[in-house]
């Protein structure tokens, strides 16, 4: 598989993982209890949310770099 293929596959799978993490029955496990005074369910939901954003940030940077590199090589090849 070519370089960058993994990033693209990850970009497809991350939202699916996110959906899975936010769906019952998984979310139901975190109802009740607290971590450091914060209700566990809040910590979990916002934690997953932040993690998704962070992964998206990394992926977007990676994929954008690739897209630009491809555009560049494409334009030099055609010129």
């Amino acid at each position: 598989m070519r370089e960058g293929g993994r990033a693209r596959d990850l970009a497809l799978i991350v939202p699916v993982i996110g959906l899975f993490a936010l769906m019952p029955p998984l979310v139901g496990l975190f109802v009740g209890g607290a971590v450091a005074g914060v209700p566990l369910i809040l910590a979990y939901l916002f934690g997953v949310w932040l993690a998704l954003i962070f992964v998206a940030l990394l992926l977007a940077r990676r994929l954008k770099g690739q897209a630009e590199a491809r555009d560049e090589s494409g334009s030099t090849a055609s010129s």
Binding site: R8, A11, L12, V14, P15, V16, G18, L19, L22, L45, W49, L52, I53, V55, A56, L59, A60, L63
Partner: peptide
């Protein structure tokens, strides 16, 4: 807000 978050994180597809 979680629905749109998932859609945007999955922007690639």
């Amino acid at each position: 807000y979680l629905g749109p978050t998932l859609v945007f994180i999955g922007f690639w597809a």
